[in-house]
Structures are given as C-alpha cells and as structure tokens.
Design a protein around this nucleic acid. Structure first.
Length: 333
DNA sequence: TTTATTTGACCCGC
DNA sequence: GCGGGTCAAATAAA
C-alpha cells in the first residue's frame, strides 16, 4: 500500500483545513443571516442563504474529497451516516479470534464477566465536553493506572428495554482547559428518538434539502448542556470483531461523573421549548451549528455518494463532527 | 416509589 | 498477578 509522503499529507491537510474554514465561515454567515427576522425583508444582504448553504455543502464535498485521497491510501475511511460524518483510521493490526467457549456463569456470578474490548473498534473523541445528545447511564468508575482522573463507564440507557449495546468510556485528561477523552464502543441500536437531533428547517426555505441541523439533542435532565467545540477527534478502526456482540455505535454523551462545574460552563437552551437558539456563549453556537451540518449527508455531494459510504462502512463507529475535522488533521499527519 | 449513581467485588485478558 | 471492564447492592436524588 502506497502511503503519501509527508509533503503530500501536509498539502492535503492544508487543503482540508482551508475548505473547512471556508465552510465554517459560510456557516457563520448563514447563521447570522437566519437570525435576521424574516419580516425585515432583507435576509440575504449581499449573499443569499441558499448561496451560503451551497458554499457550506461545497466545503464539505471538497474536504471529504481531500480526505478521500487519504482513504485511497488506506489511511482513513470516511463515512456519512445517520447525519454524522465519520472519519476512521484504518486498523492495520492483525485480527485475532477470541475464545468464546467459556462457561456461562449464573447471573449472580457473572460480575466482571467481559471480553476485553478491542481499542481498534473504538472511536475516540477528545473534547471539552462529554455531551453528545444520547442518554447514558453510568455503570462504573475506576482508577486507571498512570492517569490522574478516574475513568467513567457508561452504557446506553436503553440497554435493557431496547437491547442497545452502545457504551462509552469517559476520562478527564486535562485540568485546564478541561479536556475529556471519550471512547465509544458499539453503535446505538435503540430508537432513541428523543435524543435525536431535531432539525430546524424552514418550511418555505428552498434550502430544505440541505437539512441544516442546528440542534443536536433533545432535553433531558442529563442533556441540558451544550456541546462545546470538540477540540480534536481521533478515530480508530474496524475490521476484527472482538466484542461480546456489540457491532454498532454512535457518538453520544453524558455529563455525569465528571466535573459538573465544567459542564455548566456551557449552558444551553432547549430548541423544543425555547425556539431557535439565540447567540451562545463563547461562540459555541457557531461551533455547534458547524457540527450540526452533518445532516448534509442526505444531500448528494460532488463526486461522493454519501449513502454509498454509509452502506459500505456501516459497521464503522468512528464519528467526526465537522467542527472536529481541523483538529483531526494534524493527528493524521 | 422510581430512577440514577456510587462503589466494592468479581472475573477476564494480557 | 495485575489492570481493566462489568455487575449489582447500597445509596442518593427526583
């Protein structure tokens, strides 16, 4: 497999960053545009919303195309599914089978029974928040060797009622600024509709087809906090299945166990109860909007059939929100 | 009363 | 044997 040389990687990186920044800028303009009251009669200014949305879409397309060159070199795989763009590095490690023939113990005696996860099937997100819009239940916390903070273990709230096998581990890795590393395992198989992103789409706006999603979660006691920008995303890959039976995953989050004071730095409002979100603190709103752009996976992009990606790599569980991409790039090179 | 979190115990993989 | 992931009883919160 031919790998790009450092210079090529750097070129790709610069290209993607440029595209993403352009897209982000367009998104910011679009947000400002959409905030203007319709009655003002001037929602467009010098640039129309449609044009801005097309620019954003184009940025996505070109960025993904650039990533696609990495994919072609086996460095990563790109998936757009469920409204989320996922970038996965490819696990080049060898797969191995595991012993499944262990005796089944009684429920009472099965505590601690597990098969060690293959990190290569996880999705790691380093973020200033642990929120992701899904409902999680904490089931454990443990001090980990050579780490300052304990690792918290979460499973999907719907594990029992819907058999959802998504889990995640959250570990605080940095004091100031507070940074959490969230590792996701398995896909959400639950119909967690309340957690899904309500999409704020104008019923008359011609950009409906672009599916711009400005909110990524519904209100729950645990999900009243905003996604701040995720500072970096790395992702690992697929290939060998070594879980008990988890095969799918989704990006999600939960705030419990971790520093609640940190979480409260990013209060949010609920779009379902308060309508379109007003400008948020620290520009986080813009970041979220950019992240929310993931829904354009439903829009045919230039040279890329996102549905094909989704189908082809449906077992991948590595997610990358748009806002994370710039942070990811240095890690790729 | 119900639901979520905490925490020690348990067991497996390395 | 150690470290890490999960279970489940106890406890807290809603």
């Amino acid at each position: 497999m031919d790998l790009p040389n450092p210079q090529q990687l750097r070129t790709i990186q610069e290209t993607v960053i440029g595209k993403l920044l352009k897209g982000k800028e367009s998104a910011t303009q679009l947000v400002a545009l959409l905030k203007k009251p319709r009655s003002s009669g001037d929602r467009g200014g010098s640039v129309s919303a449609e044009e801005l949305a097309l620019q954003i879409s184009r940025s996505f397309s070109e960025s993904i195309s650039a990533f696609g060159s990495l994919e072609g070199n086996g460095i990563c795989q790109i998936v757009a599914a469920d409204g989320v763009v996922r970038v996965s590095s490819v696990d080049r490690g060898s797969s191995k089978t595991s012993d499944n023939g262990r005796k089944r113990l009684g429920v009472k005696d099965r505590r601690g029974c597990y098969r060690r996860r293959n990190v290569a099937q996880s999705s790691i997100i380093v973020s200033s928040t642990v929120e992701d819009g899904h409902a999680w239940r904490k089931y454990g916390q443990k001090e980990i060797l050579n780490t300052t903070y304990p690792r918290c273990y979460f499973r999907c709230t719907h594990k029992h009622d819907q058999g959802c096998k998504a889990t995640k581990q959250v570990q605080r890795i940095k004091e100031e600024p507070v940074v959490y590393q969230t590792t996701y395992f398995g896909h959400h198989t639950c119909s967690d509709t309340l957690m899904r992103a309500p999409q704020i789409i104008s019923d008359t706006d011609p950009m409906d087809s672009c599916l711009l999603s400005f909110e990524t979660k519904a209100p729950t006691r645990q999900n009243l906090l905003l996604y701040p920008n995720r500072v970096m995303t790395t992702a690992t890959a697929t290939g060998n299945q070594e879980f008990k039976d988890e095969t799918q995953s989704d990006v999600s989050d939960n705030k419990s166990c971790l520093d609640s004071s940190t979480m409260l730095q990013n209060p949010t409002t609920n779009s379902e109860t308060s309508g379109p979100r007003s400008s948020n603190v620290n520009g986080a709103y813009h970041e979220e909007v950019v992240s929310g752009m993931h829904s354009c996976s439903s829009t045919p992009l230039q040279g890329l059939d996102m549905e094909d990606f989704s189908t082809k790599f449906d077992d991948l569980d590595d997610h990358l929100l748009f806002g994370d991409m710039a942070g990811l790039l240095p890690a790729l090179s």
